[in-house]
Simulated assay, not measured.
Amino acid sequence: MQDQQPTRLLGPAEVRGLAEELGMRPTKKLGQNFVHDPNTVRRIVSTAGVGADDVVVEVGPGLGSLTLGLLEVAGAVTAVEVDSVLARRLPRTVAEYAPTRSERLRVLETDALRVRAEAFSERPPTALVANLPYNVAVPVVLHLLAELPTLRHGLVMVQSEVADRMAAGPGSRTYGVPSAKTAWFADVRREGPVPRSVFWPMPNVDSGLVSFARTEPPAAVDREKVFAVVDTAFAQRRKTLRAALSGWAGSAARAEELLLEAGVAPSARGEQLSIDDFVRIAEAAYR
């Protein structure tokens, strides 16, 4: 039976104290903006819908604000941290603030973009919950969804514009490569904004929450072949698909032929297509 006592979370004084102890200055390169508001942490955990049956993978735990909140409800947490100083300090922070839950934590000192499924063989994760560095948010989410098929749901905090792109549907001005590729793996929803004031240091951009629920792949065709069509279609957004896909197909005439076979108008543009449309184009090309 899990410990039901609430965990003491990190506030502004604790976050700054830990940073001072470690002699660290948050770096823009690693996207280090630490959450210091317990109410925001509890909101993230609650919105993520994490429960005792979940094994959570958290990318970029930093000083441990969100980690402590996740350990309060999750069966286990695997934290992936590239910064060696932070990775070594995290288990001690958890032992200090949530000693009865410290055995549920595992820390992987590595780059999330390089992590492989084998690293999670003992504890296959079921959920992804993270405050992601803005400059790598989409690549990290796509990599982990591809690499870890056991991930069923999750919630990530990203730059507001990135959240819009991830959750956008066809026809939206923010719909693009992140939208289409994420839709291959999951249903995605915008879950509201996060104020700048809950971070230290305060970022100069707004943040937002995005949730996802894994869905079955839309086709048996190879994912990378579909993603190649997506990348090509959006590489020249202003062009019609007939023109944009001409190099990929071999000629404009061949692109038109494939589009018609897929039931897509050659005069359409990439932002009008759903992931299912891209799948049909790839199927037409590789059958």
Rank of each mutant, 00 (worst) to 15 (best):
Q2C: 09
Q4T: 14
P6M: 09
T7W: 08
G11W: 01
G11N: 11
A13D: 14
V15R: 11
G17C: 09
L18R: 15
A19H: 07
E21S: 15
G23R: 11
G23P: 13
M24F: 13
P26F: 12
P26G: 06
T27W: 08
K28F: 03
L30G: 06
L30W: 14
G31W: 10
Q32G: 09
N33K: 12
F34Q: 02
H36N: 02
H36A: 01
D37W: 00
R43F: 04
R43H: 14
I44K: 01
V50C: 06
V55D: 08
V57L: 06
V57S: 09
E58M: 07
V59G: 05
G60H: 11
G60D: 09
G60P: 08
E72H: 05
E72T: 02
V73H: 13
A74D: 07
V77I: 11
V80T: 10
V82A: 14
V82I: 15
S84M: 05
L86C: 08
L86H: 06
R88L: 11
V94P: 03
E96F: 01
Y97E: 06
Y97F: 15
P99K: 06
R101K: 08
R106W: 01
V107N: 05
L108V: 12
L108I: 12
D111T: 00
R114G: 14
R116L: 03
E118N: 00
F120M: 08
R123K: 12
P124G: 00
P125K: 00
T126A: 03
V129Y: 06
A130C: 03
P133F: 11
N135H: 14
N135G: 03
A137E: 04
V141L: 15
L142G: 04
A146V: 05
L148Q: 02
L151K: 09
H153I: 10
L155M: 11
V156A: 07
V158F: 10
E161F: 07
R165K: 10
M166A: 08
P170N: 12
V177M: 04
P178C: 04
S179W: 05
S179A: 13
K181V: 11
K181G: 02
K181E: 11
A186W: 04
R190D: 12
W200R: 12
P201M: 08
M202P: 13
P203L: 10
P203D: 13
V205H: 09
V205D: 05
S207T: 12
G208E: 15
S211N: 08
A213D: 15
A220Q: 13
V221N: 07
V230Y: 09
F234L: 04
A235M: 10
Q236R: 10
R237I: 13
T240P: 05
R242Y: 04
R242W: 04
A244F: 04
L245C: 09
S246R: 05
A249T: 05
S251V: 13
S251A: 11
R254T: 03
L259A: 01
A262I: 00
A262V: 00
A265P: 02
P266A: 02
Q272N: 02
Q272F: 03
L273K: 08
I275M: 12
D276G: 14
I281V: 15
R287W: 02
R287E: 12
